[in-house]
Design a binder for these strands. Structure first.
Length: 459
DNA sequence: CACCCTTTGAAGCTC
DNA sequence: GAGCTTCAAAGGGTG
């Protein structure tokens, strides 16, 4: 897969007139199958072959992490289901694909040892140094519908020679064993998990205790990015370009709304991509667990979040009440009715991915594609009452979404419902589409919005 | 200079 | 199993 330089995915690349949506016009193959099996979970016959390198790791700032998506749209999302023989073995228990044989390793890393380091790897992670991608894409390498069939040797070779042994289960075939850090690996010293010096992964011949210590602090393998994170990475540049804003908090708010505005197909793409990334991540780091990074960040934040949660609860109870003191006004991040606020909404283009037949298929519970933001853009400067409404609407929407995702499936109801239709939509939702509310996910929206309003109005 | 803020989603933790 | 917490990215703001 050769990056399509013309792809809008490229941060610096030309943005097609159609905007963000243009590049997503490719058909989401999985939508052709029952939605339940579509973006379901890691067990879905995964298009492992679709797996593209997603930056499980950090990329050079200038490099667009989602570049790989281009490939998706161009070559791997062609209609049709991937051959079952390519489906990764799934661990019935975890639902996570078992570490594949080297030959099964992500087909999307058709890297020939010799070619490594020539072409920026989409995943970015294999880019140990600026402009020195660890992965190389053989000409036409990703052209093959199922590169997996053609790669392997090089891939396993690459992998086995690129990753630090301690990062990967040594016993695992085809897994990294070298000392070259994966992009997802962040030196503790560089970031997080402050640890005593001793970066050399090669440091061996030490007492078990020492080794253990080093292992603990060693490279910090980051969590694979989720769908939204992938989306953010891709769209951030664009949003930033459209806005004068630079603050991530504000950008993220915008991105969050844009995310909701995405059609199911578009979101599905990211969910799938995220799934692939998780798959790949698990393959690369069989022994890694999110637990490894759990609670290793800042504790201060932890406390803060706790208090924040509490305050959120209060706010919920005192809906509308100005109990948002503990929370910093998020409004400050939201620019007043800027075009970038919701580009599409300004001209209704957000619906350019309306409830198409395919969309409807993919989301039985999904209502008409019209959503509040179109008719009534969730302006960051919307009046309090309006925002409150939208917040409620969002919360409702999220509840359904959360329910959907909790099952390992991307939210079917990826598009906000019209304010007035929310209740009905939920009522009419199939039993299989529980409307449980994930407090953590829905509340923030429910409360943050109103809060911001309050704060804003105070300004 | 470490952390905050902000977003969503995945996964871990707690009960 | 439900509910809550943490982390993932990002970069200006903050203390």
């Amino acid at each position: 897969m050769i990056p399509d330089l013309s792809s809008p995915y490229l941060p610096n690349g030309p943005l097609s007139p159609g905007g963000a949506r243009t590049y997503l016009q490719m058909k989401w193959p999985l939508l052709d199958v029952p939605s339940s099996a579509t973006v379901k979970d890691t067990r879905s016959p995964s298009p492992a072959h679709l797996s593209n390198k997603v930056p499980v790791v950090q990329h050079p700032h200038h490099m667009h992490p989602l570049t790989p998506l281009i490939t998706y749209s161009n070559d791997h999302f062609s209609p049709g289901s991937p051959p079952t023989h390519l489906s990764p073995e799934i661990d019935p228990k975890t639902g996570i694909p078992r570490p594949p044989h080297p030959s099964e390793l992500s087909p999307y890393y058709p890297l020939s040892p010799g070619a490594v380091g020539q072409i920026p790897h989409p995943l970015g992670w294999l880019v140990p140094q600026q402009g020195q991608p660890m992965y190389s894409l053989p000409p036409g390498g990703f052209r093959h519908p199922y590169p997996a069939l053609a790669m392997n040797a090089s891939m396993s070779s690459l992998v086995s020679s690129r990753f630090s042994p301690h990062m990967v289960a040594p016993a695992h075939p085809g897994l990294p064993t070298s000392g070259i850090p994966h992009p997802a690996i962040v030196s503790p010293i560089v970031k997080q998990e402050p640890a005593p010096p001793s970066l050399s992964p090669a440091v061996s011949a030490k007492s078990p205790v020492t080794v253990k210590k080093e292992e603990e602090k060693k490279p910090h393998v980051k969590k694979p990015l989720n769908a939204f994170m992938l989306y953010m990475k891709e769209m951030r540049a664009k949003v930033v370009a459209e806005c004068t804003l630079k603050e991530s908090a504000a950008i993220n708010q915008i991105l969050g709304r844009k995310w909701h505005n995405l059609s199911r197909e578009e979101q599905a793409k990211y969910y799938e991509l995220a799934r692939k990334e998780r798959q790949l991540h698990s393959q690369l780091y069989p022994t890694w667990s999110a637990r490894d990074n759990y609670g290793k960040k800042k504790k201060r934040k932890r406390e803060k979040q706790l208090s924040q949660t509490q305050s959120q609860q209060q706010v919920q109870e005192a809906e509308g009440a100005l109990a948002s003191k503990s929370k910093k006004p998020c409004v400050q991040y939201l620019p007043p009715e800027k075009p970038c606020d919701s580009p599409a909404s300004s001209h209704g283009s957000m619906l350019d991915s309306p409830a198409t037949p395919s969309a409807a298929l993919a989301s039985p519970a999904a209502p008409a594609a019209t959503h509040s933001e179109q008719a009534q853009p969730l302006s960051l400067t919307t009046k309090p009452e309006t925002r409150a409404q939208l917040a409620l609407h969002s919360a409702t929407f999220l509840s359904a979404k959360a329910a959907a995702t909790s099952s390992g499936q991307p939210p079917l109801l990826s598009r906000p419902l019209p304010l007035g239709s929310v209740p009905t939509a939920l009522l009419t939702s199939p039993p299989s589409f529980p409307a449980t509310l994930h407090a953590h996910q829905a509340l923030p929206v429910l409360q943050a919005q109103p809060l911001s309003l309050v704060t804003k109005s105070a300004h």
